[in-house]
Design a protein around this nucleic acid. Sequence first.
DNA 1: GGCCAATGCTTGTAGTTGGC
DNA 2: GCCAACTACAAGCATTGGCC
Length: 469
Amino acid sequence: MAGILWRLRNLSRYLRGSTILTANARFNRLIRQQEKSEMSKIRWYQTRRLGRESRLTRNILARRTPLSSSSNSNNSCSFIKSQIGESLSPNSYTLLAIPIMVADTNSNDKQIDNSRQELKNSSPRRQDEKTKTTSPSRLDDNLRDRGDRGERLFKWILKQRQFTDAAIEQVIQSWFEAWQRHRQQIGQFEEFWTREGNKWTDLMLVLDPEAVISNFVAQLKADEATNSNINNCKIAIGMLFNMQGFSEVKVNGQALKQTMKQPSSALRKEHKEEPIYKLDILLKHLQSKAQRLDQLPEMEFMGSVISSIMAFATLRLAEVHRDTATPLPDGAWQLHTIIRKTKVPKTTITFRPLCNRDICPMFWLSNWFKRRNKKQQNQPLWWHKSRKKEATYEQLYKAVNIIMQEAGIEKQNTVISIRKSSITKDIDQRATQQQINRFSMHADGAATVQFHYDMNLNDDIRERLAIFE
DNA sequence: GGCCAATGCTTGTAGTTGGC
DNA sequence: GCCAACTACAAGCATTGGCC
């Protein structure tokens, strides 16, 4: 009997707090939250950015000011209605508070809760998700805070399951880069959850996690979040509920799968023929560098060594950064690294002399170590002499970019393009499939190479088709 | 300038489906 | 039952902006 009462009490709280409110009650609460949220945002801007007549602030205030007037409710109502439609259905009326940062309102009213993505799209790589640039001021505080809250929520969930601090840390450490993504997306969910009027403890009362995630995804779509962001959020929150103890079936049901079809398919890489520069451009530049080793600044020298390694070992920059190097008695050099994307991550690559000494990784590695004095010989491979510390990933990245730009490679080509160009050259030179698979070290060699690297070959075939006897 | 964090892009893996 | 193609998921990599 006590058990039944306990369940009824929990069910009652659940009905009050999360997903099964009546449409009217939810609608009224949304209006109150909306007003409260808007007012707090305006206050935030007034205090944080007082005196700065930024266009961004003016835009936001211009759009939100009516909320502070006597016609608040009506305006707010009409705004919400326009967002969610006049006829509210139980699963479509959740509305996340309007994001603080708004892009240029001269064009459309695109609202993106995830403001950093707007800053990123100035890069030539960001081509699939069109967004606009906006003032970055104070944005980062908000995002960092969001990540922290996500981390706290994740840890809190595991603590409810009696995980010790050490056990929680081990769970987190089992991720490499993915954790940074998860904590951010969980933070985004935490914002959604609390703005809905829920508390963290209400998560313990959720009976249908699929509905919660679906509502969250629907809200992200309404806010015109990017497909990438929607997918990442879905993955992170699904993982969170899994950690909470829900089965995969409960978390990732058919309705959610249906909801995710569009953003998932939008992320699939388009298979298109795109040109890549000839690797020879880079190799010729390395050759010219080899003629004047003594005059090379340290960053250029490092960039040359890395470029040579990437061209002849098809390693990714992150893998090169993890490298250690050992000389062999016959003058060859071995690189030891961890390739996390393969089934057997520990990898050793041996560089032996090439016919062209000046572009050979062996030549560049041996000279890289010759620059050091005796004390520095045992320092890490990417030891920065002038800074007296190991070079960071970003420094390696900059060093390679220097070399690529000097070589005349167009700026839109990224660091990983060295790997692409190298494998493409192999294909051009009619290396066998087996050779290419071994060289590229892809787990699923044939399919991956065909999809990602078989770039210039079709042009070559067409050229040859066009030649008459 | 160095470091950190966010996030788009890439790619490996496992599961599903359909043809034979 | 086998196999290949397709798909979703998960996580690593690359790039970049902001803060100190």
